[in-house]
Design a protein around this nucleic acid. Structure first.
Lengths: 345, 345
DNA sequence: CAGATCGCCGAGAGCGCTCTCACAGCGTTC
DNA sequence: GAACGCTGTGAGAGCGCTCTCGGCGATCTG
C-alpha cells in the first residue's frame, strides 16, 4: 500500500558505493573487468538499497527483452479440454526461467486476434515466439514468419516439408501409431480399425500414416474419420460396428476418442479387450485411467516437448548474438513415444 | 530472415508527416487535441512506415507497462491435472487483451521460485498481479503484498478474513456444497457422507462448511478427509463403506475424488444412484461425463472467474491513475455455482 | 477594434540504462 | 628512465518515447 516507493536507480547505487554509474552497471551485469573490492562495495550498495534494474530502460538500449511469446491458437477447440498445453507450458516455463526469460502468453481466437498477435510480434516486444498452431490452413504461422520473429513451432506445421527452415518440436506420431498397431497385431488381432482425428492437423494425419505403415491400404472401410472428441469417437465406433461387425481391435487417434469408442463397445455388449482391443493416444492420464477398462495408450512426453521448444528458441536467439557459435544452428526435433499398457489392449 | 529491419521511430513518422514528434505521439495515443487534417496525415505516415511504438521507451517514461503477471503456485500438485487453470487463463486473457494488456505467466515450484517471483514483481516489470495460491501456509501472498504490487487472488486466501483489503474472486464453494447436500436430502437420502479435499485449502474447507451447514455435526464419522485425487477418493470410499455400510449418499469435494469413489462403489457391488447417490464438485467435463454413471456435480463458471479477476485488477490499476473515480474501489467477488444433474444423483 | 482567452502545435528535457571512448594508473621492456 | 602496453574506471552520448511549457494564430469579449 506504500504508494510507489521511488525505486532506486543505478545512479543512486553508484553514489552510495562511491563509484560511477558505469561501474555499477558492469557489476550488475556480471562484474567482468571490475576489481574485487569495488565489486563487493557495489554489491553491498545494491543490497542495501534493494536495487532492481529497470528492464524497460535496459531493453531500450540493448534491444533485447529477455521475453518470449507463447502463442496458442484457437484454444477453444481442443486446447483446454486436456492438460496438453498446460504441461507444455510448464516445460516451457521451466526452461525459460532457467535462462531468465519471461513468458508472455498470447491466446487467440478468431481472425482479428491473429492480426493483434501479428502486430504484437512485429512490434518487437519479445525476442522470439513459441507457436502452437494446429490447423493446416491457419494463417498465423505465415503472419509470424512475415513478422520476422525467431520462432519455434509446437507440432510439425503442415507446410514445413517444402519450405526450409521452420523449426519445430513434435512427437513421433507416426512411429507411435505404428507401435500401437503392431501391438494389436501381436495380440493376434486381424481386423484392426482406426478412428482418425481431424486430418487437417498434422498429428492426426501422421497417426493415420503410421496406421497405414503397418496395415497397408487393405481395407479402407476400417478407417473412419473423426474429430478427437468423445462424441466423435462414439459416432465412429457405431459406424465401424455397423459396417464391420467382425472388427476385433481399434486404434483411436486420441484418448478422448477412445473413451467414446469404449462406451459404445460396452453398450453393444462387446467385451474389452476380449472381443475388441482398444488403444488410444496421448496418455491423458485423468481420462485414460478413469475409463473402464483403463486405457492402453501411446504416451508422449509433453513437458519435455515444451522444454525442448524453449531450448531450441533460446539457442537460436543466442546464436544471433555473440554466444559461442560452437553448437551450430539448432534443428527440429521429433520426440519418441512409448506404449503404456493398461487393460484395454 | 531479414535481419532486424530497422524499425521506424516516432521521429521518422514525424518527418514523413511533416509534423513534430509530439504531434505524432498525441495521434498515436488517441489523437486528442490534434486537428483532423493533421491526424489523417500522421495516420497515413504511420501506416506507410508500419510504425509500431516501442513499448520499452514508452514504459520508461510512463512507468506503466500494460502488463499483468499471472502467478500460479505449485502447478505440479493439482493445477495441471484438470483444465481449471487453463480456463481461468482463458478468461483472464480475454479480459486483458480487451484492454490491451499483456499476460506474463509465472509458474512456480518450490521455495527458490518464490523468491524469484517476489523479485520479479518487486522489480516493477508489471502493473499488477493475479495470483493463484492454494495453500494456507503459502508464503507467496505475503511476499507479494510486501512487494507492493496491486494484486487480485484467485480463490479466497486463507488469511483474508482478518486483514482487510485483499482482493479476491472465488466461487461460492460453501453455497454450492449446501445445494449439493440439500439435493441429496431431497432425494430422500439420510446417511449422507462427505469426502473432503485437503483442508488447508480454503475451497475444500468451505465445501466442508457447506456440508455441515446442512447436516450439522450429527455424525462426524460420515466425514472423511481426502486430497482431491481419484486414489484418495477410493481410499476414502472404502473407509466409509467399512465404517458405515448403510451410507446412501456421498458428496465428494471434487470430481476426481467422486470418480474414485464411484469405482469403489461399483467394485463393492453398490448401484449408483439406486443404492448410493454421488455428487462431485467442479464439473470437470472430461471426467464428469466419462464416469459410469455420468456424474452429477456442482459447476462453477471458471472462465468467468478469470475474467472477473482481470477486470478487478484492471479497475484497481485504473483508479490509481487518473481514471474516472466514479466506480469506487472494487471489492472481492464470490460467484454463484449451479448444480448439474447427470445420472449419479 | 483592442485585449483577454483558448486551442493547437513544436521545442526540449529527461526517463534509467548501456556502451564507447578517453584517460589514469601500473607494470613491462629496451 | 622513457616509451609502451595493459587493465580498470569514469564521462557522456543516446536508445525512443512522453509530457510540460511556451508560442502563436484564431476566437471571444466589452
Amino acid at each position: 500500500m506504500t504508494d510507489t516507493a521511488p525505486r532506486p536507480t543505478l545512479e543512486a547505487v553508484a553514489a552510495r558505493a562511491g563509484v560511477s554509474r558505469a561501474t555499477v552497471s558492469r557489476v550488475v551485469n556480471g562484474g567482468d573487468g571490475v576489481r574485487e573490492p569495488l565489486v563487493a562495495r557495489v554489491r553491498r550498495a545494491v543490497e542495501e538499497l534493494g536495487y532492481v534494474p529497470n528492464q524497460a530502460a535496459r531493453s531500450l538500449v540493448t534491444k533485447r527483452h529477455d521475453a518470449v511469446a507463447v502463442v496458442i491458437a484457437e484454444p477453444e477447440t481442443r486446447v483446454f479440454a486436456d492438460p496438453f498445453f498446460a504441461l507444455q507450458l510448464r516445460g516451457i516455463s521451466k526452461e525459460l526461467t532457467a535462462h531468465d526469460n519471461q513468458l508472455v502468453l498470447l491466446l487467440t481466437e478468431g481472425r482479428d486476434d491473429h492480426a493483434r498477435v501479428g502486430r504484437y510480434l512485429a512490434g518487437g516486444h519479445v525476442d522470439g515466439a513459441l507457436v502452437f498452431s494446429l490447423h493446416l490452413d491457419d494463417p498465423l504461422p505465415g503472419l509470424i514468419q512475415h513478422a520476422g520473429v525467431p520462432t519455434v513451432f509446437g507440432g510439425r506445421p503442415g507446410w514445413s516439408d517444402g519450405r526450409g527452415g521452420a523449426l519445430y518440436v513434435d512427437s513421433d506420431n507416426r512411429g507411435g501409431a505404428r507401435e500401437a498397431v503392431r501391438h494389436l497385431a501381436a495380440l493376434g488381432r486381424t481386423r484392426i480399425a482406426h478412428i482418425t482425428g481431424p486430418l487437417d492437423q498434422t498429428s492426426a494425419a501422421d497417426r493415420l500414416d503410421g496406421f497405414r505403415d503397418v496395415m497397408g491400404d487393405s481395407d479402407p472401410g476400417l478407417v473412419v474419420e473423426s474429430d478427437f472428441t468423445p462424441a466423435g469417437g462414439e459416432r465412429a465406433m457405431r459406424e465401424l460396428l455397423d459396417r464391420h461387425p467382425d472388427v476385433d481391435a481399434v486404434f483411436a487417434a486420441n484418448d478422448l476418442t477412445a473413451a467414446g469408442a469404449l462406451r459404445v463397445l460396452r453398450e453393444r455388449g462387446r467385451r474389452v479387450p476380449e472381443d475388441v482391443a482398444v488403444i488410444g493416444f496421448d496418455d491423458m492420464v485423468p481420462v485414460a485411467e478413469q475409463t473402464d477398462p483403463p486405457l492402453t495408450t501411446v504416451r508422449q512426453d509433453i513437458e519435455e516437448m515444451g522444454r525442448l521448444m524453449a531450448r531450441l528458441l533460446l539457442r537460436r536467439l543466442g546464436d544471433k548474438g555473440a554466444e559461442a557459435g560452437g553448437a551450430g544452428t539448432p534443428s527440429s526435433v521429433v520426440l519418441p513415444t512409448t506404449l503404456v499398457r493398461r487393460a484395454s489392449a
